[in-house]
Write a protein that binds this DNA or RNA. Structure first.
Lengths: 349, 349
DNA sequence: CTGAAAGCGCTTACAG
DNA sequence: CTGAAAGCGCTTACAG
């Protein structure tokens, strides 16, 4: 048994520095830096010599040292409530993939929908990273407006934000309105809003979608019926099933459902099936969602899909531009959602 | 129009350094450092004064500069093929949450199951991060064994790895064997392996699970029937549906299915339903998976679940220990999977 | 095309 | 309990 470990395996690992490469080739660190970063002009032969030494010594530039000077780490922070919320999972996947393709690393920061953690992300300017992509859920639009001038940050999600930030917002209100209009066009007259908010004025995704619901009713000359708005504690299948079962038991008449999160819709479908209600014959169903599941439930589910790839693309572009340019006009991008019609709504006449 | 922007909004943002805090309080940077990091002993009054100055000036330690010295960035890289693969999504969520709770940031690095990118992650030692959590899918066990002594890295996934790495492996072979045994116990005699590999010897998750399938058959005195192993191009619902539909058309008799990925099982259930086969009366179904969906399909699906939280916990612990201690014995953790029985298998007599 | 020097913002011994 | 100096590994002007 070796009592003394070799030096290299104790404490700090031996590391090959730019200086070591320079010494090996017989040039200055500046020249090595030029070769490694393709900066300045370097003699062909020198370039080759440096490349060989880099390879042989296994030199890797230290991103910390590099970042300390250049102020660029090519890293962004993605702060979402968590992968389980709304379309966060596919959105995160899109950000990871697009960033990877550009050589940008992504630090994932789950906020848990916690106000303090959301604020901390903004204050922190992302720590190691060059900037922040934040989906605010607990910070209100008013607070956001009043926040001190931040480091590079892009807000993304369902809320349009007026504050000192760039933003990418999905047009949830518009999409909810379109979804309700579709249901009414297809003959529905009493549309249940599953997962909605009875009182207006909030700026959560649910509140914004509820606004669209109200607008569509108003435009169609219908009254807002509180009994048709089903608030749920969370957005799980169980919640959807329970809320729908309760409504079915109450004998309140209805002929359509707009579910604000897809799991709610699957729960509702379950309850409707049990109650013997035909979908879409007796009840039409539309849900906000992105899941592959929508296609495979029976009946398959008509959905309102957020275009997460576009959202990720735009958000990354905005952040990159702000990191590079510093002062530039705020940019607010709105991304439409798409309605994918499937079997849970009556097909167009 | 102001032609000259104020200095602070051009180029580098004005930044408050430790030196600025020191100057404000009238102490040295060392003292500020001591307060900020709770190192050494500092006078009560000095501590307070520094705290106040930190607050007023809005000082935030620069993690890059800190990391350059201490060699610790409190950041780890999580390299998975992608959120859509097997249990990667819940595993990633678990890593994000556990790390967050410990003040560790996580850089997500999607490898796309690409060999080069997997190797790059290992060579790179994670770039900015202190260490790497990698799920290898394309690198073979042999290659892994031969890799040069790496920076801190933990391999995780279905494969047990012998190389110079710590590892956390889910016991897929054991679990597959148990699942098949369960099916046989419940009266099945011809078990289809959906998503399996006909030829033995690989070390992908599918191959390891296929090994378990073979073992269970052998233990039960049954022969391995190649026609019952359905290879699928990917692991989507469509693949599961297509493979099952083809098998149903071929008139090959079978009375149970072990699906190696959950979407395959949902596709298979779809095909079985269409063909009028009763589940579990005529065909019992078990699937590897973690999805909430399993509970809500009809019939609900018996699953083999990986304990992603434990895997994440152990992997993070191993990595933290290796980062801190450097040389220490390799640690190989195996995490069992759990079979959750639901309606798609016959309940125990 | 290349080098020597200064400096990024912090921490780490080493003195007091 | 506190300070002055050196240094982490790189890049950035500035000279040649």
């Amino acid at each position: 048994m070796p009592v003394n470990e070799p030096k290299s395996s104790r404490g700090r690992p031996t590391v090959v520095r730019m200086r070591d490469v320079a010494a090996a080739v017989g040039v200055s660190v500046k020249t090595v830096s030029n070769v490694v970063n393709a900066t300045g002009q370097v003699n062909e032969a020198t370039v080759r010599a440096v490349r060989v030494a880099v390879e042989e010594l296994g030199y890797r530039p230290n991103p910390l040292a590099r970042g300390l000077n250049s102020r660029a780490t090519d890293t962004v922070t993605l702060a979402l409530p968590g992968l389980g919320y709304g379309y966060c999972a596919p959105l995160a996947a899109a950000v990871f993939d697009l960033a990877e393709a550009e050589g940008i690393s992504v630090v994932m920061e789950p906020t848990g929908g916690d106000r303090e953690r959301e604020l901390e992300v903004l204050r922190n300017r992302g720590g190691l990273s060059d900037g922040v992509l934040l989906m605010p859920t607990a910070i209100t639009a008013r607070e956001l407006k009043a926040l001190p001038s931040p480091g590079p940050a892009v807000l993304l999600g369902s809320r349009r934000v007026e504050g000192p930030f760039d933003s990418v917002a999905s047009q949830d209100t518009v999409a909810a309105e379109a979804a309700v209009r579709l249901l009414l066009d297809r003959g529905a007259s009493r549309v249940v809003l599953l997962g909605g908010e009875r009182k207006a004025g909030g700026d959560t995704a649910a509140a914004l979608r509820t606004d669209g619901y109200r607008r569509a009713l108003t435009a169609a000359g219908q009254k807002f019926v509180p009994a048709l708005v089903l608030e749920t504690p969370r957005s799980s299948r169980d919640d959807g099933q329970a809320a729908m079962a309760q409504l079915l038991g109450s004998e309140t008449p209805f002929d359509a459902v707009l579910a604000l999160e897809e799991p709610l819709a699957h729960g509702a479908l379950h309850a409707l099936r049990r109650a013997g209600r035909d979908v879409p014959g007796q009840v039409q169903v539309v849900a906000f969602g992105n899941d592959e599941d929508a296609e495979y439930s029976s009946p398959s589910l008509t959905t309102v899909q957020a275009d997460v790839t576009t959202m990720a693309r735009r958000a990354l572009d905005q952040l990159t531009a702000r990191v590079r340019e510093g002062a530039r006009p705020r940019s607010h991008v709105e991304v439409p959602l798409t309605i994918i019609e499937r079997e849970s709504t009556i097909s167009h006449a």
